[in-house]
Each structure stands twice: as structure tokens, then as C-alpha cells.
Design a protein around this nucleic acid. Structure first.
Lengths: 340, 340
DNA sequence: CTCTTTTTGAGGTGCGTACCTCAAAAACTT
DNA sequence: AAGTTTTTGAGGTACGCACCTCAAAAAGAG
């Protein structure tokens, strides 16, 4: 039988009240006593029964997913998965809510964050660009006792909060390797498309992509990143210009959003010689393109896994436990038509 | 506030005892009353609080993972993950144990299964070849009230129990597509290696592989499957013979175990012209080969996901709930050196 | 209608923890 | 040493459900 708090109290030679104080980090306990309890925990191998604990806490866990207000199809997919998760985990007393912030106005975004109270949230997972305002808002949030985790988009301040998402440098490298291998023995230029190079994610993907391409495949010329600013018009414009300026385009790497427009357009612009196209994130559009063979491969991070991992991570923080790093690593998925 | 059993009793116009009888499928309740309670469940949107339920049940859940006694590196990986999971989920009152069965002696295997009692296991996940003996043993097991789920290797009898694992036809097709795309414009023969073609998994993978190759890439000649019987000697033998008989081998698809030996050997036998090699399942060996570029791609099913999914599925059965199919789909992962 | 069987109700206990109160003990202060 | 503050103990309630018993009510059989 696993030891209970009662057993632990006996083993430590203190009362249940003291055990409770130590276990839940309440004040008013001498260090000496804390040490004695911790020693007893070690000795007896006590593990708090989370099932009983959450039942007793009564108010399960409430987590917020902070997402940008503007976004692409991928964001819709994320939101859909969050609400699915919310449904499925209500029986486990975990509630998840989506909070939107102004991604183009850091001040307003920070203000929205500052309004999130510890009364309403035990933790939040945030997907946002890294600005000083947001960094500070997150810092104050943690001071208020709300756990935080960066989510899909990493924040600079490593160490202060965990990150759940893929390694974007590796993701870029993966795209690069696939691009080169699919191209085989041809040579030519490769277009690289991003929403904006202001974002850390795009920078990292490009870095990884170039690392593979320039070192191992000098026969290809990866052109400077084209920025779409997330609009269809500009995507059309920059792509048309690029195809006009370069006659030898053999590949297209779409790092960011607006994949749909780019894929369709590239189909028309490239002539009879098919170009190899690789994009990120599975959405209805990219999935369709993969099936239609207008897209050759998709680099994906599974939204379901990310969400579950973010919640596990937040919950572990709330209960100040460690997480198994190996369980929380988000895979860089390669999707082709056959393994959709 | 979510309705509790008490609220439900009031809503259905019955007592708590009756609610308990219906909810836990006990006998001695008229159908009319059962219907009334179910109607009230619908109407009030009652959802049993699993946290409280498992606490009250006192004896968490005990699940067994039935694995073959003999096996390759992949099996070791699975076992490692099961014990990791066991550690991590003890706080959630879920205990998992590994049970080994004689995979070469169906009678002994069935006997081992018949000894698993409902006293000790709430459910078992089984990875075993499909034989009549095992099928019957599983049937009787379910009659004893032990939930079952097929795991990695599917059993024929679809419908009678869920399956957690990948679609092996799709996995084979994925391997085929990658093989063809990596080979590019060359032509030649492709070797296909399996432990045995007796197993359904190998048959399905081969089926998927051929579907892609023969229909879309007639320039390649996928040779008949070579069987290694899981031994290093025989692997060496069949491979050496194959390379002697065919001078135009350009690809090697390793569907089953003994990947390590096959990869190393193929390296030596193929001469200066590198052949494209694709294998299944991530293990220390295959991972190393991928890094060393002696392996071009790996088709993988994540053991961690499979185990968690199997446990979620078993637990849902115990609580006779439905599972979200979308959450339980096991991905066919494509691994290359960059996204390890 | 009576007798038997089946179905239902009322009530209780316990799971392991959180969280609360109040008093008692121990530790510091001056 | 007396007073003040800090630390600890004892005890309780609650969470939502499982599981148990025993008696009462209802339904069915003859």
C-alpha cells in the first residue's frame, strides 16, 4: 500500500496539519521541521495522490491559451483542438479557455495579460511574439502566482518558463534536407517564403534550412526570404516578381502562413516543369494540396500533442512537480500524401 | 456548477442507490428505470466526475501489457517506455505491468493469458500474432470482465476489440513513396526484407509498398520479400544471395526487425553506388544508422504515444466511455537525421 | 387476493487530500 | 521571568462517488 499523508505524518513525527503546511508550501513552519518532513518523504517514498488532491481542491484547474487575434488557418486548427480538449478533459476537472490578444499592439496585448487574474486562471500558455511589454507582463503574471508556458512560439527568456513546441532550427533543416533529396540531381534556385522575418520562428527555420542547403547542397541557390505579410495580394506580388526574375526556380519553401495562395500560384507560374514545394503546418488547405500533389511535403507539429503537453506542463508547475522531458518533446512531423 | 449524482437522482426522480446501480451497470433495475435515468443524464448533461470515482474505487486501475517473449530492439524500447509510463502515472493511480508470452507456442501463450485474473487486471493491451488460441483466450478474457485492446499488431477480429497502432498498409505506402522519391530518376531492383511473411503486419506493409511502387513507379522492380526469421545469420545469407543474383539493386526496404545487421551488410555489399535504405521503428541502432547516413529514412510509431493511447482506450472501456478517435490515431512518423 | 420475487429507497462508511479553526506548546524578546 | 511571537497539534468538514446493508415498496405469480 502506498503511504498516505497520515503515514507520512507518523514517519516524520509531526501532525497532519504540519504535513499539509509543508506539502502545500504554506508558511509558519520552521526550516528544521520542513527538512524533517522532506526526509520522511524520501524515506517512505511518499507520493501525493493527485486524484484525491484534485478532488479535495474542488476547483480543478483552469488554464488559458493566449493566442494572437489575427492569424491563419493553422490558428483555427489550434483553436478547434483546444475546444475539443476542453470537452474531453472536463471530466478530469480541467477547464481550458482561449484568450485573444492584439498581436500588433504590444501595449494592448500586455494590458490584456495584466487583467488575467489568479482567481480565474491557474496557468496560461502563450503564443505571442517576444516584445519587452509581453515579457514584463508574463513576469508579473508569474509573480501573481499564475504559471506560464510558451507555446508554439518561443519567448527569448529561456529558463524563466518552459517552452512547448518544436525546435524551429531543426524543422528548417528537415525541410532543407527533404527539399534537396526530392530535387535529386537537378540544380537551380529555391524560393523561400515567410510571413515576416521579424519573427523568431521564421528566422530559426531559415537558419536551419540554410545550414543544410549551403553546406551540403551547393548546387542549389536558396534565394533571400520573400515576405508575404500574411496577405494574399502581397504573396501574389512577391511570387510573381520572383518567378519573373529567376528562370531556374526548382523549389519553393513556405515557412509561414498563406500557404494556400502560394501553392496555387506557384503551380501556375512554374510552367510545365514541376517545382518541389514544402510547407509548414497541416491545415485543410495544405492537406488538400498534399493529396492533390501540388505540395510535396509538409512539416507539421501536432496541435493535439502540443495542447496536451502544454496542459501537462502547466499542471506539473502548479503541483510543483517535474515533467518527463522525453514525454514532452514535440515531434517535427513529416507528412506526405501517404501518411496523412 | 456541474450536476452531481445527487442532482441526477433528483432530476430522475429516483434515489442515489438507483443512480449508482445504473451508472455502474449493476443488476436489479427495471429497464424503465434505467431509461428514465439515462434520459435524466441526457437532460441534465451529467458527467461522472472521474476524479472522485477513481478515488472512491480505491483500487485505481491495473493494466497489463502482454508482449512476446522473444523480440528485437524495438521491443526493448517499448518495455522501457512502459516502465517509464508506470512511474509517471502512479500518482494517477494507474499501474502498468508487462506480461511476457511465448510467441512461438500459441497453446502456452493462451494458457498464460487464461491465468490473468480480473482480480489483478482491469484490462490488458496485447501485442501478439493472431492465432485461434489467442483469439479464444482474449474472448474468454473479455467474458471475465477484463478489457482488451490490440496493440501494435492488430488481431483479425475487427470490432470485437479496439486497435492501437498504425495502419500498416499506409506505412508501407509511405515507405514506397519515400523510396521512389529518394531514388529519383534511376532505375533498378529494390530488396524487401521481413522477419517473416506469416505476420499480418509484414503482409500489410508489403501490400502498401507495392501499391505505390507498381502503380506509380514501374521503373523499379521490387523483388519478392526476403525472410530473415529474426536471426543475424539468415539475414546475412539471404542478403548476400540477393546481391549476388541482382546487380542492379538500388534500394532496400526493411519491414521488420534485424535492421542493424541488414543495414551494415547492405553497406558493404552494394559497392560504391549508395543504395537507398528505409527501415521501420526507431531504436538505438536505427537511430545511429540514420545519423551515420547509412539509413535514409525511418518509418516510426511513437511508443510513448501508443502506450498512452492504449491506456486511455482501456480506461475508457472500463468506465464505458467513448474515446475521441481523432486523439487516438497513431501517426506514421517519417524520421530523417534532421528531425530525430 | 395472498405469496413470492424483484426493484427501489434510505442511510451509512470510506477513499486521500485540502483547508479551516482554535488552543497548546515551543521559541524567542526584553 | 514574564510577555510576545512563532510554530505545532488536534480536530473538524468537504469534495463526489463507490459500495454496502437492510427494510420497504412495487410488480409479478398463482
Amino acid at each position: 500500500m502506498r503511504p498516505t499523508t497520515k503515514d507520512l505524518a507518523k514517519a516524520a513525527g509531526v501532525s497532519l496539519a504540519t504535513i499539509d503546511r509543508v506539502l502545500n508550501g504554506r508558511s509558519g513552519v520552521r526550516q528544521k521541521t520542513v527538512d524533517a518532513v522532506n526526509e520522511a518523504i524520501e524515506r517512505t517514498g511518499f507520493q501525493r495522490n493527485q486524484v484525491a488532491a484534485t478532488l479535495a481542491r474542488q476547483k480543478g484547474y483552469r488554464f488559458g491559451f493566449v493566442l494572437p487575434r489575427t492569424g491563419d488557418e493553422f490558428l483555427d486548427v489550434i483553436i478547434k483542438h483546444i475546444s475539443e480538449f476542453d470537452q474531453a478533459s472536463r471530466a478530469e476537472m480541467i477547464a481550458t479557455k482561449v484568450v485573444r490578444i492584439d498581436d500588433h499592439d504590444p501595449h494592448r496585448a500586455a494590458k490584456t495579460l495584466s487583467r488575467l487574474s489568479a482567481e480565474d486562471y491557474d496557468g496560461i500558455a502563450i503564443m505571442a511574439p517576444e516584445t519587452p511589454q509581453i515579457r514584463d507582463a508574463l513576469y508579473r503574471m508569474r509573480e501573481r502566482g499564475i504559471q506560464t508556458v510558451a507555446f508554439i512560439s518561443n519567448q527569448q527568456e529561456e529558463g524563466s518558463q518552459p517552452f512547448v513546441g518544436i525546435d524551429n532550427i531543426a524543422a528548417g533543416a528537415t525541410a532543407g534536407r527533404l527539399m534537396a533529396r526530392f530535387l535529386g540531381h537537378t540544380t537551380g534556385s529555391i524560393l523561400v517564403l515567410a510571413e515576416t522575418m521579424q519573427s523568431r520562428d521564421s528566422l530559426e527555420r531559415r537558419l536551419g534550412f540554410d545550414k543544410v542547403m549551403s553546406r551540403e547542397y551547393p548546387q542549389f541557390d536558396a534565394l533571400p526570404t520573400l515576405e508575404t505579410h500574411g496577405t494574399a495580394e502581397r504573396t501574389r506580388l512577391v511570387l510573381a516578381n520572383a518567378f519573373a526574375a529567376h528562370q531556374d526556380i526548382v523549389g519553393l519553401y513556405i515557412m509561414g502562413s498563406e500557404a494556400r495562395v502560394a501553392i496555387d500560384l506557384a503551380q501556375n507560374l512554374c510552367g510545365e516543369e514541376k517545382i518541389i514545394t514544402i510547407a509548414h503546418e497541416r491545415t485543410p488547405s495544405t492537406e488538400h494540396a498534399l493529396r492533390a500533389k501540388t505540395l510535396d511535403a509538409l512539416i507539421n507539429q501536432d496541435p493535439g500533442h502540443i495542447i496536451r503537453s502544454a496542459v501537462r506542463t502547466l499542471r506539473a508547475q502548479c503541483e510543483n512537480r517535474e515533467t518527463l522531458a522525453s514525454q514532452e518533446r514535440i515531434r517535427i512531423e513529416i507528412l506526405i500524401a501517404e501518411n496523412l
